[in-house]
Design a protein around this nucleic acid. Structure first.
Length: 658
RNA sequence: GCUAGCGUAGCUCAACCGGCAGAGCGGCUGAUUUGUAAUCAGCAGGUUGUGGGUUCAAGUCCCUCCGCUAGCUCCA
């Protein structure tokens, strides 16, 4: 006897073994038809899985309306796609086919490459399978039989997976659909007819088990929805996202360029982009001084031995521009490295004289230009480049000061992001992976640093709950990263705070300070950068604002437009007045209609337009037009000026484009 | 770096099976003197990313390199 308890508290009793499908059938015909899967005592199962024979069972039937439903049809859709590919490309081996945000993918090992040109016939085959509406049938086999089955099916990757990863399992499950059998944990929806509408989106390479040393597979990405309308909306959203892409807007708004003639991944800041950057730099310098940092300037190149001492050079040899070898060129001389990091130079400043505990914490800051030879396939607009500027600083402090200093860094980063209206960020604690040998320093110092990091993050008011990611640490220490998404959902690290017990150590630079006890001690170092890199940060900012920067950052803050050339003389007086107060003002005296001038200014995302015609000239006024709200009516020049100055002063963020 | 795709005017994109390189926007010139998201007309603009090959003929087919896009891998 089993007692099935439903979410509304009601219950049904059965004397025989039953499945969720049968329970749904007993409740109602329509429900039975709509049921995609079930949650049994918190575990997601298929409709045809037998429930326990006795006792109490909490059962929730899952239909389209439930949050899990989309994931279910996408998972089943991945199987439908795999089945279609198996039919069209004989001999393919299946790897994995999970769901992801907004869709699914499936990895295949094939002799012949699959390209987007194949999508129509794959989709056609998928539609046929959906039409056939065969059930997804769960088959559970003992492990050795499962291995034998996969071998028989020619699915060597699955054999490998069962033997390597599922070695502890007594049984494994498969899902069968006619001729198609796939190793899969499930659950699946009852039959192929319920997968809804789908579309294949892209094909890409992916490594077996994420390991670049193993076979490269073909990964097909797709998406599935319940209705055509939902699918269309999703595709439309992708299209819109593309329009706020910083690479598109960067060109349109003339913010930056990347010129293959200069080099891949090397950013040229155009005057308008440079203006945005200058404002951000002024802002960050203000904060640095207010918070007790000491700005310095150091060269972008240094002796390679410095980076051997720090460990950067041997560790990242492959992803640095090779050293400039003077001996190879002149016959004698040293080797210089285009610096990939600023810390060694700042460390040398620390070491330039004996330091006392009274000097600590010492906070050395620099907008430091660094170069890294990133893999060609990684380069992306301003977000992943080969030359960039870190708003870097290194704090040298005593062990006792670590928590306070670390907190101060978090607070500054938080403040910077908040000022710019960036609120959609996550905090990632990158910890070391103890099983890896890529880190320097003892396990004890790592434990200590990670514990301090986690504690301070959790205590920090207003900070999102951090999530720990093991293996994401820098080689010299754990870190807290501020992470945001770009317009197409890719994750990027912006700000970072890193705790370092290693570069100061005797094995590295051997930093010291003289303590109150008149004996030498080893300081702790904190690396931190609230923006991270200015290139990446501005790239994200462009997307965040969809190019419509807040007034204080806007390259052109206000444009003076004349209704007719007749008013040019007065307009020029207004323009001069605005410029002399430091506003970035532009003007449009073309013999065009106002409509056209407004349209152009609007497209250029200029925050304010001051429109001047006969009425304004007579009264010493301007007609103010706001980028967001349109015509605000006429006001005296000085009043309009004051309004803008106030908005700039307060760094108002009026709109975060949605 | 790997897999797949792409590279035509400043930008966005056409050009059928290999057969005379084109449009819109932008630019320039002229006309128009305009009141809150596009006035009209004319003109200029190209070694089709690079180097090689196949062919009577290459933007189109093949190879090399460079660059770009998506994903994987990497990310101090």
């Amino acid at each position: 006897m089993v007692n099935v308890i439903l979410p509304d508290g009601s219950s049904l009793e059965y004397a025989r073994r039953i499945t969720p499908a049968e329970v749904a059938g007993d409740i109602g015909k329509r429900l039975a038809k709509a049921t995609l899967a079930a949650e049994v005592d918190g575990r997601l199962v298929g409709c045809d899985e037998t429930l326990p024979p006795d006792g109490e069972v909490r059962l929730r039937l899952i239909t389209q309306k439930d949050p899990e439903a989309l994931d279910l049809i996408r998972h089943s859709c991945a199987h439908v796609m795999a089945r279609a590919v198996m039919r069209l490309f004989p001999g393919v081996q299946l790897a994995f086919g999970p769901t992801i945000e907004n869709g699914f993918y499936y990895d295949f090992l094939t002799e012949q490459p699959i390209s987007e040109e194949d999508f129509p016939r794959i989709e056609a085959e998928m539609r046929k399978i959906v039409q056939e509406d065969e059930p997804f049938e769960r088959v559970v086999l003992p492990r050795d039989e499962a291995v034998a089955l996969c071998r028989e099916l020619g699915q060597e990757l699955k054999v490998e997976h069962i033997e390597e990863a599922l070695g502890d399992e007594a049984t494994v499950s498969f899902y069968r659909q006619g001729e198609f059998v796939d190793l899969c944990r499930g659950p699946h929806i009852p039959s192929a007819g319920k997968v809804g509408v789908f579309k294949l989106l892209s094909v890409a390479g992916a490594y077996w088990k994420g390991d670049a040393a193993r076979q490269q597979l073909q990964r097909l990405y797709g998406t599935a929805w319940f209705t055509q309308q939902e699918l269309d909306e999703y595709l439309c959203k992708l299209e819109e996202a593309r329009r706020r892409d910083h690479r598109v807007l960067g060109r349109q708004l003339e913010l930056f360029m990347i010129d293959p003639a200069v080099g891949a991944g090397l950013v040229l800041w155009l005057p308008k982009g440079a203006t945005v950057r200058r404002e951000l730099e002024a802002f960050i310098y203000g904060e640095l001084l207010r918070r007790g940092y000491q700005p310095v300037y150091t060269p972008a190149i240094g002796r390679v031995e410095l980076y051997e001492t720090s460990g950067h050079y041997p560790y990242y040899k492959e992803s640095q521009f090779p050293p400039v070898d003077l001996a190879a060129y002149w016959g004698e001389g040293e080797k210089y490295l285009l610096r990939p990091m600023n810390c060694p130079h700042h460390i040398r400043i620390y070491q330039s004289k004996p330091r006392s505990y009274r000097d600590l914490p010492l906070r050395i800051a620099e907008l430091g230009l660094v170069h890294r030879y990133e893999q060609s396939g990684e380069l992306t607009g301003m977000t992943r480049v080969r030359g960039f500027t870190q708003d870097d600083a290194h704090i040298f402090c005593t062990e006792d000061q670590v928590a306070d200093e670390f907190r101060g860094c978090l607070e500054m980063t938080q403040y910077v992001l908040k000022t710019l209206g960036l609120e959609n960020y996550r905090v990632r604690l990158g910890f070391g992976d103890r099983s890896s040998d890529k880190y320097v320093g003892s396990p004890e110092t790592w434990e200590r640093a990670e514990a301090a990091l986690a504690r301070v993050c959790r205590e920090m008011p207003g900070l999102p709950e951090p999530h720990v990611q093991v293996g994401e640490a820098a080689f010299y220490g754990p870190k807290a990263d501020f992470v945001v998404d770009d317009c197409i959902g890719r994750e990027w690290q912006l700000g970072t705070v890193q705790l370092d017990y290693n570069l100061p150590s005797r094995q590295r630079f051997g930093l010291e300070y003289i303590g109150a006890d008149n004996r030498p001690h080893e300081p702790v170092m904190i690396h931190r950068a609230p923006f991270g890199s200015l290139e990446r940060f501005v790239g994200m900012l462009i997307e965040h604002f969809a190019g419509a920067f807040p007034l204080w950052l806007a390259p052109e803050q206000v444009r003076v437009l004349v209704v007719s050339e007749k008013f040019e003389e007065y307009a020029r007086q207004v323009e001069r007045r605005l410029a002399e107060t430091g506003l970035r003002v532009g003007a449009d005296y073309r013999p065009e209609k106002v409509g056209a001038k407004i349209r152009d200014a609007q497209i250029e995302r200029i925050p304010y337009m001051f429109i001047i015609g006969g009425r304004e000239q007579e009264t010493g006024a301007v007609a103010v037009r706001d980028r967001l709200e349109g015509d605000l009516g006429a006001m005296p020049v000085e009043a309009a000026l004051a309004k803008l100055r106030e908005e700039i002063e307060a760094k108002v963020v009026r709109q975060v484009a949605g």
